[in-house]
Design a binder for these strands. Structure first.
Lengths: 237, 237
DNA sequence: GTAAAAACTTGATCTAGATCAAGAGTTTGA
DNA sequence: TCAAACTCTTGATCTAGATCAAGTTTTTAC
């Protein structure tokens, strides 16, 4: 299992009648950037991903769906831009339509500890700050350029009360988040560093190639050096 | 902060008019057992604690409250008795009225890893097994003699649908559980063994004297030996 | 296009906490 | 009531992963 090289060859060729293949060119291409480009081209309206998510997760009438959309606030983040900074009170429920975001704390020595990653089709934010209306201990910033749909918490609660299907969806997400957190605790208690990494790659395929290793190491509770060595070892096998 | 001795002296004496004190006797007494005895004497009906909890957490009509009680299944566990065993599917929502329970996994070497403790006024069970209707990876057993109120999940969901206040309470618990799990992850990533212990004692005063050290060590992700040494060190200060 | 800043790798050394072992105290159950 | 089974403590030793340091590659920004 070799490290995915960022730049990879792309071959251009044409198949001509008679079975011969005419070779044009090879260029080196950054697959990840290309994929992002495609996704952007396809999404003429980037909230449509949220629309699609709602359709999958819930059964809404047209009116309900429009009601939800009417409360949606669209937000774009450039890479490294903050969504939430430590000390601020978080006031939203946030759904990611495109991109990737990390939630982390900074300790007194300046070390960053990644608490979670969130990508398209996931929710992000600080529930504790939101619920208790207290300053957040977390920072949230964008790992890639990111697009979100925000709801103020008042609107969000209103939607929960008005639309049972929406409420069910929220409940469901919360349960899954809790289960995921439980599993993470379990992993951190029982697994070795190597097992933690393999478990992560296995559970979230795609994350590993998209998120800087330093951050993954932090998420898994180890140093970047250790992760680098583990990757080297596992690549051999 | 010295280790709490299980058997402690209790002095019997009387104050006589004129300021003299008449001394009777000293006996050694197990405060913990005595406390439990008192609690049991006071609770002529042990579901009343659940009743009290509901009254505190929610605003229910008399009818709603009776409806909830009508679905309640009372269960008693002796110390060490299982509530759930690995491989079984968990089908309830469970509220503890008295006692203490632990949730843990067993690894292939036979080592036990405590995932959580739950005491009076808390909920317990395996959400993952319940939600996905799949065999549980967890064991739950009683650390002390324990009394619970169970609801089958169907009844529980019925109550959630019927009684908005009940639904809100459940939502609230879930949010708090999720926040607690997040904080635990945070602690396990950032704190040293000693800090983890102090954080635990600080956050859950009362747990430390009630739960065997081996289990606390496991919960905190360290060996009993390490915890023993930490306790010795912090006692000095 | 290029210099500065990040991100990643590799090696040498160190340390918090694990493991192993053995004794003392406590609880359990026939 | 007493032996067996836990639970806790303490010491000696070991090790996974941290820390420190220096080189290489990749990304960023002017």
């Amino acid at each position: 299992m070799n490290r995915k090289k960022r730049w990879q060859p792309l071959f251009f060729y044409a198949s001509i009648s008679g079975g011969r293949t005419l070779f044009f060119d090879i260029i080196l291409i950054d697959w990840h950037a290309l994929k992002n480009l495609f996704i952007r081209c396809l999404l003429h309206n980037f909230t449509s991903l949220f629309q699609k998510y709602l359709e999958e997760k819930t059964e809404l009438t047209q009116a309900e769906s429009e009601r939800i959309q009417s409360f949606a606030i669209i937000k774009k983040l450039r890479k490294r831009q903050y969504l939430l900074q430590e000390g601020d009170v978080w006031k939203y429920d946030a759904f990611i339509t495109q991109g990737c975001v990390r939630t982390y704390t900074v300790d007194e020595k300046g070390g960053e500890h990644v608490n979670s990653f969130s990508i398209e089709n996931w929710w992000t934010g600080d529930r504790e700050s939101l619920m208790m209306q207290q300053p957040s201990r977390f920072n949230i910033d964008a790992i890639e350029d990111t697009e979100l749909v925000l709801f103020t918490h008042e609107n969000f609660e209103l939607l929960c009360r008005e639309i049972p299907a929406f409420n069910n969806m929220v409940n469901n997400i919360l349960q899954r988040s809790f289960i995921a957190a439980q599993n993470r605790i379990q992993a951190s208690l029982t697994l070795t560093a190597e097992e933690k990494y393999l478990n992560f790659v296995n559970k979230y395929p795609g994350f590993a190639s998209r998120i800087p290793q330093t951050m993954i190491a932090s998420y898994l509770g180890m140093t970047p050096e250790t992760l680098s060595r583990i990757r080297k070892q596992t690549a051999k096998k």
